[in-house]
């Protein structure tokens, strides 16, 4: 089977891999669209959640992993609790997002950057250093005035720290990152 305009054919292996992670066969979906109907972020999606499931049913790995929708899903679980076929769609979206990142498909670089800046902050200090996080993100994204309209007022509240809180167990946290990295390398 080949979709019009697509060069890749069906990738059943990919589908099986994803199915084992969400514990449901994508064939269960009968395309009722209830997941899409009250999805708060579907206005920003290129493929609606039921279309993502449809692409999965047709084994269209590349189209799925290229989709912007994966990046704009807020994992709010509305789709999951409403699905008449009990498919954990929110989980599906996050499993696909991780796979997209692993295979180098990034539909929104800003979101990728925000996520990675966040994780780096955890890796470095053990906790989130919010002022530093926003600063680093703005610098790296080149969007220097991002959220600048609320910045000064925020500072005035005195709630933001100017220096990070470094936890004592920073080395433990580092080790988690290191061990994960080496175990991932070992698998490849």
């Amino acid at each position: 089977m080949r979709l019009k305009g697509q060069t890749r054919t069906v990738d059943r292996e990919f589908v099986a891999e994803v199915e084992s992670e969400i514990d449901t066969a994508v064939a269960a979906c009968y395309q009722c669209g209830k997941c899409t109907a009250d999805c708060p972020l579907s206005f920003s999606f290129d493929y609606t959640p039921n279309q993502i499931l449809r692409l999965m049913q047709l084994g269209q790995k590349e189209m799925v992993l290229r989709s912007e929708s994966l990046w704009y899903c807020a994992t709010c679980y509305t789709c999951t609790i409403r699905c008449p076929k009990e498919i954990d769609i929110a989980k599906l979206m996050s499993v696909l997002l991780i796979k997209a990142r692993q295979e180098g498909y990034v539909a929104d670089h800003k979101i990728r950057l925000a996520q990675e800046t966040f994780v780096n902050s955890v890796a470095r200090y053990g906790r989130i250093f919010e002022a530093g996080l926003v600063g680093t993100y703005n610098l790296k994204s080149g969007d220097l005035f991002n959220n600048a309209d609320i910045g000064p007022r925020l500072l005035a509240t005195g709630k933001l720290r100017f220096l990070p809180h470094r936890i004592k167990g920073r080395r433990e946290i580092r080790k988690i990152f290191d061990r994960l990295r080496s175990s991932r390398k070992g698998k490849r």
Partner: peptide, 25 residues
């Protein structure tokens, strides 16, 4: 004492194991 960040959404969007490990500590 000395709790660490749970990793929130970004950690599990990057690596599910990472997210679990941060919480597990």
């Amino acid at each position: 004492p000395d709790w660490n960040c749970c990793g929130a959404a970004p950690a599990c969007q990057v690596d599910h194991m990472l997210s679990s490990a941060l919480s597990a500590r």
